[in-house]
Design a protein around this nucleic acid. Structure first.
Lengths: 110, 110
DNA sequence: AATCTATTTGCATATTTTCGAATATATGAA
DNA sequence: TTCATATATTCGAAAATATGCAAATAGATT
């Protein structure tokens, strides 16, 4: 294994999380499995598009499926993935909050 | 703020982490500030290229700089960012370990 | 001015994202 | 069984983004 392989692997995983729609999907199916149409409806995005994003995540073992009749339910393969996404989301929320506070501060100095 | 803005922001941050060179930079300057040339040398990558990656991270407030003479030192703006990267890295290492174990297991069954 | 360090520009290439249309797969009705 | 329907995936093409290089430029120091 090349010394830089771990960075490549890490990057490949982050690449999956680097799309707003995929993130929305991750948080949607993080708690309970959901079928493609349901995901598409909640997100207001075309089924084909959701399916394409799910295919990418399936390839990389980030989501797994179970079939029930004509429907295919997707869920995250590991709770750790949700944990990681949640941690980053919190950093983002904190950051947004700080920015807002900075704005308000600047405002009060006028 | 659009309800999906948080996903966009989250995705933009992950996008920064979705490149092996940028990740290597993040871990290099996570502990102590380092100048561009030094980073380039450690990574065995052209200075111009490192500078380009740093510019992206500067724009998004992921790194900050201090000048010392002709040198410009870069460091992460927040320890939380390193924390997040470290968490994901650990997930990646665990995963790699599991894959290796699975391979060895399969081997012993022959 | 000459040098060291870093950034930017202009370009070529590669990758990602999305779409509409076509295709596949399972179910239930006739 | 065969057909129609519901659900999901794949294909081919267009547009948008990302990446990396060499060369040019900028800024600080001696």
């Amino acid at each position: 294994m090349d010394a830089k392989d771990i960075y490549k692997r890490h990057a490949a995983f982050c690449q999956l999380m680097s799309n707003p729609k995929r993130l929305e999907i991750i948080f949607l199916i993080g708690k309970e499995a959901m079928c493609v149409e349901e995901i598409a409806k909640k997100m207001d995005v075309r089924v084909a598009n959701v399916s394409q994003h799910l295919a990418l995540m399936r390839e990389k073992n980030v989501v797994s499926t179970t079939r029930e009749g004509t429907k295919i339910y997707y869920k995250l393969t590991s709770p750790k993935l949700l944990e990681a996404c949640t941690l980053i989301r919190e950093i983002m929320l904190d950051q947004a909050k700080e920015e807002l506070a900075a704005l308000l501060d600047a405002d009060s100095c006028q």
